[in-house]
Simulated scan of single mutants.
Amino acid sequence: MGRFDKYMLQQLLMLFGFFSLLLALVFWVNKAVGLLDWLMGDGQSASTFLRLTLLSLPTILVNLLPIAAFAAVVYVTNRLSSESELVVVQAAGYSPYRLARPVLIFGIIVGLMVAVLAHFLVPMSQRELDLRRAEIAQDITARLLTEGSFVHPVKGITFYVRNITAAGELEDVYLSNSREKNQRQSFMASRALIVKDDTGPMLLMFDGMSQTYEIAEQRLSVTRFDTFTYSLAGLLGDTQTQPRSIRSTDSLTLLMASPALEAELNRSPMQIVAEVTQRMNKAVQGVVICLVGFAALLIGGFSRFGLWRQILLAIVLLVIVKSLDNSFGGAIDRNPGLWPLRYLASMLAVIMALGLMWKAGHPRLRRRKDRAAGEMPT
């Protein structure tokens, strides 16, 4: 690797780190707001919030790293052009294809990072995230034990506790169940404990009473008790363990999937191939959009006013490539047998980059056109 290649690659990596951090913070804050709302509503702690947000980072990074790489390439190329460094290197005999070598190396580095994320880290984090969400859904303590507040863990259930002692004893408990159409139940107790049983968590109440109101007969029954046990399993809603999803399964396992795993994932072999292809294409796009951004700025030459037109062209080309990729992705979702179309947008991006580099390597054609336009009679 030549000295110029090392210099440009160093600049690209440095700006790539900056843009990645900036975009990650923006996306992380946006995702964290909704997550914080959900967790605080269920009475979870700040450590749980931090753990879940960290688990969501791989999913965020796999989508923003190619965009950060594109921004780094455009920024570095524009700066090298405005400071005449590209002009000096081109005068030394570097062709556009030779100038693209550090950009290609940089794109491969980004592509490898995206591949590791897409094929392994994102499925691992998604699986762990699913497990943590299931644990939170089954955490009856966090969902019910909020002092001095009426909580509604599921529709039709209201729970209130005035105070929770250091020993974990609940004082002045109220529980209302209005899920039945023809019956309303409510329980009041001076003390209560939450204990675990084979059938699930149980609310053990002391010194209280229960009220049952029959709506059809308009009859109220009151029963006083010294001790009463009420199952809280129904308050959790549907807490069955969710089956493994295709998003939480790494690509190596998907490619070696047995019929039993295909049945668990509820996916056909063609759908599995389409999923692995989508992950691979994310890594490929990390390479090709870097080349597109570099080639679009390379055709501008030197300008003291900057390459704003070429930057705009690079952004337009990026939008075209991503729009085509999304369109092909929708078609593949409807018909997984079309999975080869996943690479079509990336191939088009490569053709764009090569065409722009060829144009940058033949400036005489542009000069001839400009000269012919200037010599036209008026």
Results as ranks from 00 to 15, higher is better:
Y343F: 15
R334H: 15
A353E: 00
R367I: 07
G355S: 10
A372P: 04
L365D: 11
R367Q: 06
N335Q: 15
D370L: 12
A373E: 10
P340N: 05
W339C: 07
H362V: 11
K369P: 02
D333N: 13
G374D: 13
D370N: 08
A353W: 00
N335W: 10
I351Q: 04
L338F: 04
M347I: 14
S346I: 03
W358Y: 11
L365P: 02
N335A: 07
L348F: 14
M376T: 11
H362Y: 03
M357A: 03
W339F: 10
G355L: 03
V350T: 13
L338D: 05
G329P: 06
R334E: 14
M357Q: 04
L344N: 01
I332F: 11
A360K: 01
L365T: 05
P363R: 02
M376A: 11
R342P: 07
G374W: 13
S346C: 06
Y343G: 06
A372R: 13
A360T: 02
I332N: 07
A373Y: 03
G374P: 07
A373W: 12
H362Q: 11
S346Q: 10
R366K: 08
P363H: 09
L348H: 05
A353V: 01
Y343N: 07
G329T: 07
G374M: 14
D370S: 11
R366I: 08
P340L: 06
P363L: 02
I332M: 05
E375R: 08
M357W: 00
R368N: 13
P340Q: 07
A353H: 00
A331L: 15
A360C: 04
I332C: 11
V350L: 15
L365C: 09
R334I: 06
G337K: 06
M347Y: 12
R334D: 15
Y343H: 10
P363M: 01
M352F: 15
P336H: 09
R367F: 04
G374Y: 06
V350G: 05
R368Y: 08
G355E: 00
A349Q: 08
M352C: 14
A345R: 10
R366V: 10
E375N: 09
N335Y: 06
N335D: 13
G337Q: 07
A360P: 05
M376E: 12
E375F: 12
L341R: 04
A372I: 09
R371Q: 10
K359V: 04
L365V: 10
A353T: 01
W358Q: 00
D333W: 08
D333K: 15
L348K: 02
M347Q: 14
G337D: 09
